[in-house]
Design a protein around this nucleic acid. Structure first.
Length: 543
DNA sequence: ATTAAAAGCCAC
DNA sequence: AAACGTGGCTTTTAAT
């Protein structure tokens, strides 16, 4: 039925369901790809929280089955049924009504229709739902992963794979050098922070902790082998052979994306750490024979998004360049004489968006504030709202959570009659910290919205490109077997696995999608979103 | 014995 | 440049 409707409708249906993760995998497995969907679970979370939505008051609409509903797991079909069994075993629980999708959709429609920003909310909900489709599709396709290349990388850096419970040769050598430099016992275990710190103290190294940037400042023979050890140890434990065994099957790495999993609306991932693949293992990401990758990332996405939200003509112009095409925004800031170097422009803008006040970032802030008063005022207002305990909202309408109970208690504590200096200092610190959060929330959250619109547009355009005439290998599953498809999404970057002959066409669509996302969020406002795009058979070569 | 927290580093 | 935003994940160590 779904296949039929998708194939024959003049206008694509918007399939509405409780959870994309629950329904879409089976459709894909049957070779059916969906153009449009509406994910009630995701939409509920946005609307319930949004300051822009006309959501019913809590007394009319008490928390129900849609609140806190977790997404179905893509990895484990059986796990879906377990929570209910578990609750039953624990004894009587509060009765919650069964979720009714039809009445829930009606509540959503009213909440959007009654909003003064209905268009933006509709866009946000559509983009979030399209993101959910893309996330399930990426899980199905998987990220092409050459286990043999990964193993070669590990062997090159760590030495051959050791027997279980043993250190690789390179790590064992470094452990010996660390013990020598500290004049420590031969059984000192560098993996034990407590023992190591004690031995370092005895040797007079003078380290307060084992953080990399802390160690880098010290001058002692142990520092060099220790930093090297930590670096290799990290590779071994986070992305070593055990990771390979657990997460790579049949030439694909599959990690679940958790759409809206971050408070700002960014995606999170679950299993294998897809959003933190270190640079050195990206060599294992190799396209299938006859296929290649198109790797695209949005240049200086967050400051551009800020320029759009704040309607800051000057900042938008700094990212536009003389011929009207996008240029490096930090270079543009230097060219307009605001600061001396690109590095200063970058740390200054990051500081403005993250709430940094110290060092060179803090020093250039006044100059940026003078050159781009609208953008700087915009993030400052978001910070001040947060410090007052208020909620802030992204461009399309995702609102920040209100500060929690601890925050309230700490603030109240500072106003007690017997409040001491430490109470007020603590309250001030909490206040500032929440202000940094809301300051960043509006920018990071709106950047996530741009990225979802971009991704949604990309997946639609890739499908419209159709099938490649002949594709040599059969390792890509249906319905993508002969089609360009998304395989990785990293906040402001996408990787597309495509039949090699289509790569240029794909790159054009990805650029067009970025322009479309900019228009969807900011209309005619002249902020541009240039991409850096590379076509390469290996992800590591695409930078 | 199991769970939670802390420390640390990776990504954006 | 400095240690300021959002996370996931692994290991060690402390707590229950």
């Amino acid at each position: 039925m779904v296949r039929e409707a998708e194939a024959t409708s003049a206008v694509w249906p918007r399939w509405t369901w409780d959870d994309t993760n629950r329904w879409y995998p089976a459709l894909l497995a049957a070779g059916v790809r969906i153009e449009r969907a509406y994910d009630l679970r995701l939409a509920h979370r946005i609307l319930r929280q949004s300051a822009l939505a006309a959501w019913p008051a809590p007394e009319e609409e008490p928390p129900g089955p849609w609140d806190g509903m977790p997404p179905a797991s893509l990895a484990d079909d059986a796990a879906r049924d377990e929570p209910a069994t578990l609750f039953a075993a624990l004894g009587p629980v509060e009765m919650v009504p069964e979720p009714d999708p039809v009445s829930e959709l009606q509540v959503h429609s009213a909440a959007v229709a009654g909003s003064s920003a209905a268009g933006r909310l509709r866009l946000l909900l559509a983009a979030e739902s399209a993101g959910a489709l893309a996330a399930v599709e990426m899980y199905r396709a998987g990220l092409p992963w050459r286990a043999d290349v990964h193993d070669a990388v590990l062997t090159e850096i760590l030495g051959p794979r050791p027997r279980a419970g043993e250190r690789p040769a390179r790590l064992e050598d470094l452990a010996d050098r660390i013990r020598d430099a500290l004049d420590a016992a031969p059984d000192l275990n560098p993996d034990s922070p407590g023992d190591l710190l004690k031995a370092m103290d005895l040797a007079g190294v003078g380290a307060r902790n084992l953080r990399k940037w802390e160690l880098e400042r010290l001058d002692h023979p142990v520092i060099e082998p220790l930093l090297e050890y930590k670096s290799l140890y990290r590779l071994l434990t986070a992305n070593g052979w055990a990771w390979l065994d657990e997460w790579v099957r049949d030439g694909r790495f599959r990690s679940e994306y958790v759409v809206g999993g971050v408070v700002t609306g960014r995606w999170a991932s679950s299993g294998g750490g897809a959003l933190q693949l270190p640079k050195n293992v990206r060599r294992a990401v190799v396209a299938d024979p006859g296929w290649t990758f198109v790797v695209a990332d949005a240049a200086q996405l967050e400051p551009r998004v800020l320029a759009g939200m704040a309607a800051d003509e000057a900042m938008a112009a700094a990212g536009r360049g003389a011929d009207g095409r996008g240029v490096d925004m930090y270079a543009g800031i230097v060219a307009s004489g605001v600061v001396a170097t690109r590095e200063l422009a970058k740390v200054g803008m990051l500081g403005a968006m993250y709430g940094g006040t110290t060092g060179s970032s803090g020093q250039v802030l006044p100059r940026l504030a003078k050159a781009f008063p609208r953008s700087l005022a915009f993030v400052d207002e978001a910070a001040q709202a947060g410090e007052r305990g208020e909620v802030v909202t992204t461009h399309l309408g995702r609102s920040s959570p209100p500060p929690g109970a601890t925050w309230q208690e700490v603030q109240a504590g500072a106003y007690q009659d017997d409040a001491g200096d430490s109470d007020t200092a603590r309250a001030r610190s909490y206040t500032r910290s929440w202000g940094r959060f809301t300051r960043n929330f509006v920018v990071q959250g709106t950047a996530a919205e741009w990225a979802m619109c971009w991704t949604a547009s990309i997946r639609r355009r890739l499908w419209a490109l159709g099938q490649a005439p002949d594709v040599p290998d059969g390792r890509v599953p249906e319905p993508f077997a002969a089609r360009a498809h998304l395989v990785l999404f990293l906040h402001d970057e996408v990787v597309i696995h495509t039949p090699a002959a289509m790569a240029e066409a794909v790159a054009d669509e990805v650029r067009a999608a970025a322009a479309e996302a900019g228009r969807l969020l900011f209309g005619d406002f002249p902020v541009q979103f240039p991409l850096s795009i590379a076509v390469a058979d290996c992800y590591a070569e695409a930078k």
